[in-house]
Protein backbone atom coordinates (compact mmCIF):
# COMPACT_ATOMS: atom_id res chain seq x y z
CA UNK A 1 0.00 0.00 0.00
CA UNK A 2 2.81 2.38 0.95
CA UNK A 3 4.59 1.65 -2.33
CA UNK A 4 1.43 2.36 -4.30
CA UNK A 5 0.94 5.62 -2.46
CA UNK A 6 4.57 6.54 -3.09
CA UNK A 7 4.10 5.77 -6.77
CA UNK A 8 1.02 7.96 -6.96
CA UNK A 9 2.79 10.84 -5.21
CA UNK A 10 5.78 10.59 -7.54
CA UNK A 11 3.44 10.55 -10.52
CA UNK A 12 1.77 13.69 -9.24
CA UNK A 13 5.17 15.29 -8.74
CA UNK A 14 6.17 14.40 -12.28
CA UNK A 15 3.02 16.04 -13.59
CA UNK A 16 3.67 19.10 -11.45
CA UNK A 17 7.21 19.41 -12.77
CA UNK A 18 5.91 19.12 -16.30
CA UNK A 19 3.30 21.80 -15.68
CA UNK A 20 5.48 24.27 -13.80
CA UNK A 21 8.53 24.00 -16.02
CA UNK A 22 6.78 23.29 -19.29
CA UNK A 23 4.82 25.30 -21.78
CA UNK A 24 2.95 27.61 -21.15
CA UNK A 25 4.07 28.25 -17.54
CA UNK A 26 7.61 29.10 -18.65
CA UNK A 27 6.25 31.46 -21.32
CA UNK A 28 4.14 33.28 -18.72
CA UNK A 29 7.12 33.71 -16.39
CA UNK A 30 9.26 34.83 -19.31
CA UNK A 31 6.70 37.49 -20.17
CA UNK A 32 6.66 38.56 -16.52
CA UNK A 33 10.44 38.84 -16.66
CA UNK A 34 10.22 41.11 -19.69
CA UNK A 35 7.60 43.21 -17.94
CA UNK A 36 9.49 43.56 -14.66
CA UNK A 37 12.97 43.82 -16.15
CA UNK A 38 14.31 41.45 -13.49
CA UNK A 39 15.73 37.90 -13.79
CA UNK A 40 12.55 36.13 -12.72
CA UNK A 41 12.82 33.12 -15.03
CA UNK A 42 16.12 31.67 -13.73
CA UNK A 43 14.82 32.01 -10.17
CA UNK A 44 11.54 30.35 -11.15
CA UNK A 45 13.20 27.46 -12.98
CA UNK A 46 15.84 26.69 -10.35
CA UNK A 47 13.45 27.36 -7.45
CA UNK A 48 10.80 25.01 -8.82
CA UNK A 49 13.42 22.42 -9.67
CA UNK A 50 14.79 22.55 -6.12
CA UNK A 51 11.36 22.30 -4.53
CA UNK A 52 10.44 19.30 -6.67
CA UNK A 53 13.65 17.56 -5.60
CA UNK A 54 12.88 18.35 -1.96
CA UNK A 55 9.37 16.95 -2.33
CA UNK A 56 10.74 13.83 -4.05
CA UNK A 57 13.23 13.34 -1.22
CA UNK A 58 10.46 13.65 1.37
CA UNK A 59 8.30 11.13 -0.48
CA UNK A 60 11.08 8.63 -1.13
CA UNK A 61 12.70 8.80 2.28
CA UNK A 62 9.51 8.17 4.23
CA UNK A 63 9.78 5.21 6.60
CA UNK A 64 8.57 2.23 4.63
CA UNK A 65 6.34 -0.66 5.62
CA UNK A 66 8.04 -3.88 6.59
CA UNK A 67 8.21 -6.39 3.78
Amino acid sequence: MARQRQGRLLGALLLLLFLLLGYPAVLVVEELQHHLGRPVLPVWVFGTWGLIILAAALILEQPRERR
Binding site: Q6, G7, L10, L13, L14, L17, F18, L21, W49, I52, I53, A56, L60
Partner: peptide, 12 residues
Amino acid sequence: LGPTLVCLLFPL
Protein backbone atom coordinates in the same frame (compact mmCIF):
# COMPACT_ATOMS: atom_id res chain seq x y z
CA LEU B 1 15.32 18.73 -16.66
CA GLY B 2 14.63 15.64 -18.79
CA PRO B 3 16.71 13.35 -16.56
CA THR B 4 15.00 14.89 -13.53
CA LEU B 5 11.67 13.83 -15.01
CA VAL B 6 12.85 10.31 -15.67
CA CYS B 7 14.46 10.05 -12.22
CA LEU B 8 11.01 10.50 -10.68
CA LEU B 9 9.99 7.38 -12.61
CA PHE B 10 13.02 5.40 -11.48
CA PRO B 11 11.27 3.50 -8.68
CA LEU B 12 8.92 2.06 -11.29
